[in-house]
Every structure is written in C-alpha cells, then in structure tokens.
C-alpha cells in the first residue's frame, strides 16, 4: 500500500549543488507524491542530472534538505538506495556477463537471495520482452534492447521509486514507443517514476507533473496541459521562408497573433486560432514556402520561458 497522498515520496527544500565555483543546481524545491510520474524538463546543463544524482543518493547535496521515503538523503543513503531503481543516462551494464546474469548479480547487490534473483530475472526479462536474449552477452544487443535490460535490472529490487535519466535519448522512434509502453505499465502498477528528458513529446506522454529547469533553477511547474495553457496560446502557426530571409519576412508578419518567435529556420506565430492568423499573413501578401498549423506543445512553453529552443 502506498502511504497517504499527503506524505511526499521526495521532498527537496532549497536544494543546492555546487562543483567548485560552478552552481549546477541553485536552490530548488520539489515534492513528488507516491504513484506520481514526475519529470524534469530542460536543455543540457540545466541541472537535471545533478538533481537526479542527489535524489539517487550518489552525490551529496551542497546545502538544503532532501528527504526520500521520509529519510534524510545525506545520512540514510544506503537504505534509500535499497528501495530505489535507477536507469542511468548511459547504460552501465556489466559487459562481462550475460543479460540474465546482469540482472541476477544486480539483485545480489541488494542482498536478495540467489534463487529469488533468478525467479525475478526471468519475470523481468519477460516484461521487457527479452526472454529469448537471456543468455546473450550485452555487446551484440541494439541500443533499445540495452535500455530495456537497464530497465529490467533497475526493477530487480521491486523499487518503490524508479529514476530514469533521459530514458529514450539516442533511441529510434520505434524503440522509444516500446519503452514508453513499458514505463506506462509500471506507472499503472503504482511505481513512482521520476525522469529527466529534453524531449517534449516524452514529457507529454509520461509525466503527470513536471518542472521546467534552466540554469540550475526551476522556471515553471505544473501538468503538461497546465503549462501549455498558462504559457502558450492554443495554436501555433509555423512559417518557413527561403533560407536566410527570415528577418525580412518577420517584418511582413509583425503584429499577427499574441507573440512571435523568429527561429533560424522558421517563424512561429502564437495565436488562439492558427487559421485566422494564416489568413492575415496571406492578406498582407507574404508568401512562405510552407506553412503548418499545430497545437501548442511544451516546446513552445520552453521557448517562451527561456528564450531558447530546447534541442540546439
């Protein structure tokens, strides 16, 4: 049974991480409730991974309070790690062992009896659809398969909390969807997920609630829908002009919609109704090479909050 929803699983107050003069995390507050799926969204260097490492109890906070399962992260790291699963950004699988042995030895690090490790390993390999690769070495596996082994391994101790650092970075679209499906099932089983991503679609797919980080700080917080509603009009009109002529054309469409962003490859116009905005563009005699009307996404929220595109 999960504890009452009022008790947060993770609670951070004024959490700071510094490396010498560099402040990676500059005083953030977070609360993650049991069963929730929580995301850290932000570009590289925003402080997501540093935060995850502190939550994972493999990096002591420079200052501030961090409680996980109601335990102080600085003093009870060992106990906390015992109830947590971690999927690192880069797979750290044991290349000298087979897929199945990877899971078994990992369970042994948690003092789980060998026979039980074996039983769970079989079950988990089934869960990540890798039963037929149980006796394979790690090296010949594809990127998506390796990531699935990492996820299976992180579940060997039946964790209450699963940390995933950029779970689908570098995977092809099909592998991503398989992974999302598995994570969604875990969430349905009541596992609390905490993940970092710089993909908006991933955050929209997996997160109940998320924080947007930039430069070591939290710049916005809410559910994906809330964030879009709050920080971006309903629709976006994307205009593409011949390369290098964006600036001239930005003049032609000035003032249309609520707000505009001129990106290197396109101009974005934020409006309640994209079609109406497009009519206005045409009425002014501006002729883009291509146009696209779409719903606002977290990408637009990020652009507004930080003034920068997410994936450079």
């Amino acid at each position: 049974m999960n504890p009452p929803a009022s008790t947060p699983l993770i609670e951070a107050r004024q959490l700071v991480k510094r490396f010498g003069d560099f402040t990676a995390v500059g005083g953030i507050n977070i609360e993650v409730r049991p069963g929730e799926s929580f995301g850290f969204l932000g570009p590289n260097g925003a402080g997501k991974s540093s935060t995850m490492r502190m939550i994972g109890c493999v990096s002591p906070p420079t200052s501030g309070d961090l409680n996980i399962f109601g335990l102080d992260a600085t003093r009870h790291g060992k106990q906390i790690r015992g109830r947590m699963g971690v999927v690192p950004q880069l797979d750290q699988l044991d290349e000298q062992l087979t897929v199945q042995d990877n899971l078994i030895v990992y369970g042994r690090y948690f003092d789980i009896p060998r026979a039980e490790c074996k039983r769970r390993a079989q079950e988990l390999l089934e869960f990540v659809q890798l039963t037929d690769r149980a006796d394979s070495k790690i090296e010949p596996l594809s990127g998506g398969m390796k990531r699935r082994v990492s996820i299976a391994r992180s579940l060997i101790n039946e964790p209450d909390l699963l940390l995933l650092d950029e779970p689908t970075t570098g995977l092809d679209p099909q592998a991503r969807h398989v992974l999302w499906d598995r994570l969604y099932r875990l969430k349905q089983q009541g596992v609390t997920l905490v993940l970092t991503t710089h993909y908006m679609d991933e955050a929209e797919q997996l997160c109940d609630r998320l924080v947007v980080m930039d430069g070591g700080r939290i710049v916005a917080e809410g559910s994906p829908n809330e964030l879009i509603r709050e920080h971006s009009p309903r629709e976006v009109l994307e205009l593409r002009y011949p390369a290098g002529t964006n600036e001239e054309h930005a003049f032609e469409v000035e003032g249309i919609g609520h707000r505009q962003e001129a990106l290197p490859d396109r101009i974005l116009i934020y409006a309640d109704d994209g079609e109406v905005a497009l009519k206005e563009v045409h009425a002014r005699g501006s002729i883009p090479e291509s146009v696209l009307v779409r719903r606002s996404s977290l990408e637009d929220v990020f652009l507004k909050l930080t003034g920068r595109s997410l994936v450079d």
Binding site: R81, P88, L93, D94
Partner: peptide, 14 residues
Amino acid sequence: HEKLYDAVLATPMT
C-alpha cells in the same frame, strides 16, 4: 569503460 562501479554504487553497496 564499463562504468561498473557507477552501477554498483547506485545500490546499497558503498
């Protein structure tokens, strides 16, 4: 290369 100890230290191992 293997980052073995990073993975090990994420568990109760010290």
